[in-house]
Amino acid sequence: MKFDHNNISPLDNRYLSKISDIRNIFSEHGLIKTRFIIEINWLLFLCEKYPRYFTKINSATIKKIIKFRDSFNDQSVLEIKKIEKTTNHDVKAVEYYIRNFFNKDKGLSKYNHLIHFGLTSEDINSLAYAILLKDGLKIYLNNIKLLNANLKKLSKKWINIPLLSRTHGQAASPSTIGKELKVFTTRIDREIKKISDITPLAKFSGAVGNYHALDLAVSNIDWIKLTKRFIKNFNVEQNRITTQIEPHDWIAEMLQIITRINNISIDLSQDLWIYISNEIFKLKLNTNEIGSSTMPHKVNPIDFENAEGNFGLSNALNDFFINKLTKS
Protein backbone atom coordinates (compact mmCIF):
# COMPACT_ATOMS: atom_id res chain seq x y z
CA MET A 1 0.00 0.00 0.00
CA LYS A 2 1.00 3.63 -0.47
CA PHE A 3 1.16 4.23 3.30
CA ASP A 4 2.13 1.67 5.94
CA HIS A 5 -0.68 2.82 8.20
CA ASN A 6 -3.23 1.55 5.65
CA ASN A 7 -2.12 -2.06 6.14
CA ILE A 8 -4.32 -4.42 8.13
CA SER A 9 -1.59 -6.44 9.81
CA PRO A 10 0.87 -4.92 12.33
CA LEU A 11 3.46 -7.20 10.73
CA ASP A 12 3.38 -4.81 7.78
CA ASN A 13 3.68 -1.74 9.99
CA ARG A 14 4.55 -1.69 13.70
CA TYR A 15 6.62 -4.89 13.70
CA LEU A 16 7.97 -4.57 10.15
CA SER A 17 11.56 -3.87 11.22
CA LYS A 18 11.60 -7.03 13.34
CA ILE A 19 10.64 -9.42 10.53
CA SER A 20 12.38 -7.98 7.46
CA ASP A 21 14.44 -11.16 6.90
CA ILE A 22 11.52 -13.57 6.90
CA ARG A 23 9.22 -11.09 5.15
CA ASN A 24 11.37 -11.38 2.03
CA ILE A 25 10.80 -15.14 2.09
CA PHE A 26 7.11 -15.40 2.97
CA SER A 27 5.73 -12.40 1.06
CA GLU A 28 3.49 -12.97 -1.95
CA HIS A 29 6.39 -11.75 -4.08
CA GLY A 30 8.55 -14.50 -2.56
CA LEU A 31 5.96 -17.19 -3.25
CA ILE A 32 5.28 -16.13 -6.84
CA LYS A 33 9.00 -15.84 -7.58
CA THR A 34 9.65 -19.32 -6.21
CA ARG A 35 6.85 -20.79 -8.34
CA PHE A 36 8.31 -19.00 -11.36
CA ILE A 37 11.82 -20.36 -10.72
CA ILE A 38 10.50 -23.92 -10.34
CA GLU A 39 8.63 -23.71 -13.67
CA ILE A 40 11.68 -22.36 -15.50
CA ASN A 41 14.10 -24.82 -13.91
CA TRP A 42 11.84 -27.78 -14.71
CA LEU A 43 11.80 -26.87 -18.40
CA LEU A 44 15.60 -26.48 -18.47
CA PHE A 45 16.06 -29.70 -16.50
CA LEU A 46 14.05 -31.73 -19.02
CA CYS A 47 15.80 -30.30 -22.05
CA GLU A 48 19.30 -30.61 -20.60
CA LYS A 49 18.93 -34.09 -19.09
CA TYR A 50 16.90 -35.73 -21.85
CA PRO A 51 17.40 -33.82 -25.14
CA ARG A 52 16.51 -36.92 -27.21
CA TYR A 53 13.00 -37.00 -25.73
CA PHE A 54 12.45 -33.26 -25.46
CA THR A 55 13.34 -30.31 -27.65
CA LYS A 56 17.10 -29.90 -27.87
CA ILE A 57 18.30 -26.66 -26.37
CA ASN A 58 21.51 -24.76 -27.16
CA SER A 59 23.65 -22.66 -24.84
CA ALA A 60 22.43 -19.36 -26.28
CA THR A 61 18.80 -20.28 -25.60
CA ILE A 62 19.67 -21.46 -22.10
CA LYS A 63 21.35 -18.12 -21.37
CA LYS A 64 18.30 -16.27 -22.68
CA ILE A 65 15.96 -18.26 -20.43
CA ILE A 66 18.23 -17.89 -17.40
CA LYS A 67 18.44 -14.14 -17.97
CA PHE A 68 14.64 -14.02 -18.04
CA ARG A 69 14.48 -16.09 -14.84
CA ASP A 70 17.05 -13.99 -12.99
CA SER A 71 15.46 -10.68 -14.00
CA PHE A 72 12.27 -11.43 -12.02
CA ASN A 73 11.20 -8.30 -10.11
CA ASP A 74 8.20 -6.41 -8.75
CA GLN A 75 7.00 -5.64 -12.27
CA SER A 76 6.95 -9.38 -12.98
CA VAL A 77 4.70 -9.89 -9.97
CA LEU A 78 2.32 -7.16 -11.15
CA GLU A 79 2.07 -8.73 -14.60
CA ILE A 80 1.37 -12.16 -13.13
CA LYS A 81 -1.26 -10.70 -10.81
CA LYS A 82 -2.90 -9.04 -13.81
CA ILE A 83 -3.08 -12.39 -15.60
CA GLU A 84 -4.51 -13.98 -12.45
CA LYS A 85 -7.45 -11.57 -12.56
CA THR A 86 -8.48 -13.38 -15.75
CA THR A 87 -7.44 -16.96 -14.93
CA ASN A 88 -8.50 -16.81 -11.27
CA HIS A 89 -5.70 -19.36 -10.82
CA ASP A 90 -2.39 -18.30 -9.29
CA VAL A 91 -0.15 -21.09 -10.61
CA LYS A 92 -1.68 -20.95 -14.09
CA ALA A 93 -0.99 -17.20 -14.13
CA VAL A 94 2.73 -17.92 -13.68
CA GLU A 95 2.60 -20.43 -16.53
CA TYR A 96 0.88 -17.92 -18.85
CA TYR A 97 3.38 -15.22 -17.90
CA ILE A 98 6.23 -17.47 -19.03
CA ARG A 99 4.34 -18.48 -22.19
CA ASN A 100 3.70 -14.83 -23.10
CA PHE A 101 7.42 -14.11 -22.85
CA PHE A 102 8.35 -17.17 -24.92
CA ASN A 103 5.81 -16.24 -27.62
CA LYS A 104 7.71 -13.02 -28.28
CA ASP A 105 10.76 -14.99 -29.41
CA LYS A 106 10.67 -17.57 -32.26
CA GLY A 107 13.53 -19.47 -30.69
CA LEU A 108 11.78 -19.73 -27.34
CA SER A 109 8.24 -20.35 -28.61
CA LYS A 110 9.08 -23.92 -29.64
CA TYR A 111 9.54 -24.76 -25.94
CA ASN A 112 6.04 -23.63 -24.98
CA HIS A 113 4.76 -27.21 -24.69
CA LEU A 114 7.33 -27.90 -21.97
CA ILE A 115 6.12 -25.14 -19.64
CA HIS A 116 4.43 -26.86 -16.67
CA PHE A 117 5.05 -30.18 -18.46
CA GLY A 118 3.28 -33.16 -16.87
CA LEU A 119 2.56 -31.32 -13.64
CA THR A 120 -0.37 -30.28 -11.52
CA SER A 121 -0.50 -27.07 -9.49
CA GLU A 122 0.21 -28.92 -6.25
CA ASP A 123 3.57 -30.09 -7.66
CA ILE A 124 4.62 -26.45 -8.02
CA ASN A 125 3.02 -25.40 -4.74
CA SER A 126 4.28 -28.23 -2.55
CA LEU A 127 7.84 -27.65 -3.73
CA ALA A 128 7.50 -23.86 -3.47
CA TYR A 129 6.17 -24.04 0.10
CA ALA A 130 8.86 -26.56 1.04
CA ILE A 131 11.53 -24.15 -0.23
CA LEU A 132 10.02 -21.17 1.59
CA LEU A 133 9.59 -23.08 4.84
CA LYS A 134 13.11 -24.51 4.59
CA ASP A 135 14.59 -21.03 4.12
CA GLY A 136 12.37 -19.53 6.82
CA LEU A 137 13.21 -22.34 9.23
CA LYS A 138 16.92 -21.62 8.79
CA ILE A 139 16.40 -18.01 9.92
CA TYR A 140 14.08 -19.11 12.73
CA LEU A 141 16.63 -21.64 14.00
CA ASN A 142 19.41 -19.05 13.95
CA ASN A 143 17.25 -16.69 16.03
CA ILE A 144 16.24 -19.38 18.54
CA LYS A 145 19.86 -20.51 18.89
CA LEU A 146 20.93 -16.90 19.46
CA LEU A 147 18.22 -16.45 22.11
CA ASN A 148 19.32 -19.64 23.86
CA ALA A 149 22.99 -18.69 23.68
CA ASN A 150 22.20 -15.36 25.39
CA LEU A 151 20.14 -17.12 28.06
CA LYS A 152 23.01 -19.53 28.70
CA LYS A 153 25.43 -16.63 29.17
CA LEU A 154 23.08 -15.00 31.67
CA SER A 155 22.50 -18.34 33.41
CA LYS A 156 26.24 -18.78 33.88
CA LYS A 157 26.72 -15.16 34.94
CA TRP A 158 23.93 -15.32 37.54
CA ILE A 159 24.46 -18.90 38.73
CA ASN A 160 25.30 -17.79 42.29
CA ILE A 161 22.69 -15.05 42.70
CA PRO A 162 20.14 -16.40 45.21
CA LEU A 163 16.43 -16.43 44.46
CA LEU A 164 13.53 -17.46 46.66
CA SER A 165 11.57 -19.97 44.60
CA ARG A 166 7.82 -20.09 44.61
CA THR A 167 5.45 -23.01 44.19
CA HIS A 168 1.70 -22.47 43.86
CA GLY A 169 2.61 -18.76 44.01
CA GLN A 170 3.87 -19.12 47.57
CA ALA A 171 7.38 -18.74 48.99
CA ALA A 172 9.20 -22.07 48.83
CA SER A 173 12.87 -23.13 48.91
CA PRO A 174 15.91 -21.15 47.71
CA SER A 175 17.37 -21.43 44.22
CA THR A 176 19.49 -19.19 42.00
CA ILE A 177 18.55 -17.03 39.04
CA GLY A 178 21.11 -18.87 36.92
CA LYS A 179 19.61 -22.26 37.70
CA GLU A 180 16.08 -21.09 36.89
CA LEU A 181 17.23 -19.78 33.50
CA LYS A 182 19.00 -23.08 32.86
CA VAL A 183 15.62 -24.81 33.05
CA PHE A 184 14.55 -22.82 29.97
CA THR A 185 17.80 -23.32 28.01
CA THR A 186 17.61 -27.08 28.56
CA ARG A 187 14.03 -27.19 27.33
CA ILE A 188 14.85 -25.11 24.26
CA ASP A 189 17.90 -27.27 23.47
CA ARG A 190 15.67 -30.35 23.25
CA GLU A 191 13.30 -28.64 20.82
CA ILE A 192 16.16 -27.27 18.70
CA LYS A 193 17.42 -30.81 18.21
CA LYS A 194 13.97 -32.01 17.15
CA ILE A 195 13.27 -29.19 14.71
CA SER A 196 16.76 -29.51 13.20
CA ASP A 197 15.83 -33.06 12.18
CA ILE A 198 12.77 -31.93 10.19
CA THR A 199 13.04 -32.91 6.51
CA PRO A 200 11.15 -30.68 4.02
CA LEU A 201 9.12 -32.81 1.59
CA ALA A 202 7.48 -32.15 -1.78
CA LYS A 203 5.65 -34.20 -4.38
CA PHE A 204 6.19 -33.87 -8.12
CA SER A 205 4.01 -36.65 -9.49
CA GLY A 206 1.20 -34.96 -11.37
CA ALA A 207 -2.55 -35.32 -10.93
CA VAL A 208 -3.52 -37.85 -8.20
CA GLY A 209 0.18 -38.59 -7.61
CA ASN A 210 0.63 -41.46 -10.08
CA TYR A 211 2.99 -39.85 -12.65
CA HIS A 212 0.34 -40.50 -15.36
CA ALA A 213 1.00 -37.60 -17.72
CA LEU A 214 4.77 -37.94 -17.44
CA ASP A 215 4.74 -41.68 -18.10
CA LEU A 216 2.31 -41.37 -21.01
CA ALA A 217 4.54 -38.73 -22.60
CA VAL A 218 7.79 -40.71 -22.27
CA SER A 219 7.51 -44.20 -20.82
CA ASN A 220 11.26 -44.90 -21.13
CA ILE A 221 12.12 -42.50 -18.29
CA ASP A 222 12.05 -43.50 -14.64
CA TRP A 223 10.03 -40.49 -13.58
CA ILE A 224 10.18 -41.25 -9.86
CA LYS A 225 13.98 -41.09 -9.92
CA LEU A 226 14.05 -38.12 -12.30
CA THR A 227 11.65 -35.97 -10.27
CA LYS A 228 13.55 -36.89 -7.11
CA ARG A 229 16.75 -35.57 -8.70
CA PHE A 230 15.00 -32.37 -9.72
CA ILE A 231 13.54 -31.73 -6.26
CA LYS A 232 16.90 -32.48 -4.66
CA ASN A 233 18.35 -29.46 -6.50
CA PHE A 234 16.35 -27.31 -4.05
CA ASN A 235 17.57 -29.29 -1.00
CA VAL A 236 14.10 -30.78 -0.58
CA GLU A 237 13.30 -34.49 -0.35
CA GLN A 238 10.69 -36.25 -2.45
CA ASN A 239 7.50 -37.69 -1.02
CA ARG A 240 6.84 -40.17 -3.80
CA ILE A 241 3.71 -41.81 -2.40
CA THR A 242 0.91 -39.24 -2.27
CA THR A 243 -2.51 -38.38 -3.61
CA GLN A 244 -2.82 -35.23 -5.71
CA ILE A 245 -1.48 -33.28 -2.74
CA GLU A 246 1.52 -33.74 -0.46
CA PRO A 247 -0.09 -34.59 2.92
CA HIS A 248 1.84 -31.92 4.90
CA ASP A 249 2.61 -34.17 7.86
CA TRP A 250 6.13 -32.76 8.02
CA ILE A 251 4.74 -29.21 8.19
CA ALA A 252 2.42 -30.20 11.05
CA GLU A 253 5.35 -31.80 12.88
CA MET A 254 7.42 -28.64 12.43
CA LEU A 255 4.58 -26.40 13.68
CA GLN A 256 4.03 -28.63 16.71
CA ILE A 257 7.67 -28.15 17.70
CA ILE A 258 7.41 -24.40 17.11
CA THR A 259 4.32 -24.36 19.33
CA ARG A 260 6.28 -26.03 22.13
CA ILE A 261 9.07 -23.46 21.70
CA ASN A 262 6.40 -20.74 21.82
CA ASN A 263 5.03 -22.16 25.06
CA ILE A 264 8.50 -22.32 26.60
CA SER A 265 8.99 -18.70 25.54
CA ILE A 266 5.62 -17.67 27.03
CA ASP A 267 6.64 -19.35 30.26
CA LEU A 268 9.95 -17.46 30.19
CA SER A 269 8.24 -14.12 29.41
CA GLN A 270 5.78 -14.54 32.27
CA ASP A 271 8.53 -15.47 34.73
CA LEU A 272 10.62 -12.48 33.74
CA TRP A 273 7.88 -9.90 34.12
CA ILE A 274 6.94 -11.48 37.47
CA TYR A 275 10.61 -11.11 38.50
CA ILE A 276 10.30 -7.45 37.50
CA SER A 277 7.10 -7.08 39.51
CA ASN A 278 8.86 -8.62 42.51
CA GLU A 279 11.78 -6.23 42.00
CA ILE A 280 14.26 -9.03 41.38
CA PHE A 281 14.95 -7.36 38.03
CA LYS A 282 14.62 -3.67 37.24
CA LEU A 283 13.72 -2.33 33.83
CA LYS A 284 15.99 0.31 32.35
CA LEU A 285 14.23 3.60 31.71
CA ASN A 286 14.50 4.93 28.18
CA THR A 287 14.12 8.69 28.45
CA ASN A 288 12.53 8.86 24.99
CA GLU A 289 9.79 6.35 25.83
CA ILE A 290 6.60 6.86 27.85
CA GLY A 291 5.58 4.03 30.15
CA SER A 292 2.12 5.36 30.92
CA SER A 293 -0.01 8.16 29.52
CA THR A 294 -0.92 9.31 33.04
CA MET A 295 1.78 7.82 35.31
CA PRO A 296 5.16 9.02 34.01
CA HIS A 297 7.09 7.13 36.71
CA LYS A 298 5.95 3.75 35.35
CA VAL A 299 8.04 1.47 33.12
CA ASN A 300 5.99 -1.45 31.83
CA PRO A 301 7.47 -4.81 30.72
CA ILE A 302 5.84 -4.34 27.32
CA ASP A 303 8.35 -6.41 25.36
CA PHE A 304 7.61 -9.49 27.47
CA GLU A 305 3.87 -8.78 27.36
CA ASN A 306 3.94 -8.33 23.57
CA ALA A 307 6.00 -11.49 23.20
CA GLU A 308 3.45 -13.43 25.25
CA GLY A 309 0.61 -12.20 23.04
CA ASN A 310 2.42 -12.83 19.76
CA PHE A 311 3.44 -16.34 20.82
CA GLY A 312 -0.18 -17.03 21.72
CA LEU A 313 -1.39 -15.80 18.33
CA SER A 314 1.25 -17.94 16.64
CA ASN A 315 0.02 -20.97 18.59
CA ALA A 316 -3.56 -20.37 17.47
CA LEU A 317 -2.52 -20.22 13.81
CA ASN A 318 -0.23 -23.23 14.23
CA ASP A 319 -3.07 -25.24 15.74
CA PHE A 320 -5.34 -24.41 12.79
CA PHE A 321 -2.74 -25.40 10.19
CA ILE A 322 -1.76 -28.56 12.07
CA ASN A 323 -5.35 -29.76 12.03
CA LYS A 324 -6.31 -28.43 8.59
CA LEU A 325 -3.33 -29.26 6.38
CA THR A 326 -3.11 -32.94 7.32
CA LYS A 327 -6.68 -33.63 6.20
CA SER A 328 -7.17 -33.75 2.44
Rank of each mutant, 00 (worst) to 15 (best):
Y275R: 08
I188N: 01
H297I: 01
K49G: 04
Q256Y: 09
E237M: 13
L283G: 02
F320N: 12
R190E: 11
K145V: 10
T120P: 03
N239Y: 03
I198P: 04
E237Q: 09
L163H: 07
A207K: 04
I221Y: 06
I192P: 02
L325P: 05
A217Y: 08
S205Y: 01
L226F: 10
D267E: 07
V208E: 00
S277W: 02
N300Q: 02
A202V: 07
E237A: 15
K145Q: 09
I25K: 11
L255F: 15
N263R: 06
L11N: 07
D12L: 10
T34E: 08
N73P: 10
T287C: 03
T61K: 11
I139R: 00
L151N: 06
F184R: 01
M254H: 11
K324G: 06
K104C: 03
V299Y: 00
K82N: 15
K134Y: 09
L137P: 02
F36E: 00
N103F: 07
K64I: 06
F45Y: 12
Y275T: 07
D189I: 05
I274T: 13
L272P: 07
A217R: 08
T55Q: 09
F101C: 01
T34H: 08
R99M: 15
F234D: 02
D135S: 08
L43M: 13
D215H: 04
K179S: 09
L317Y: 15
E39Q: 13
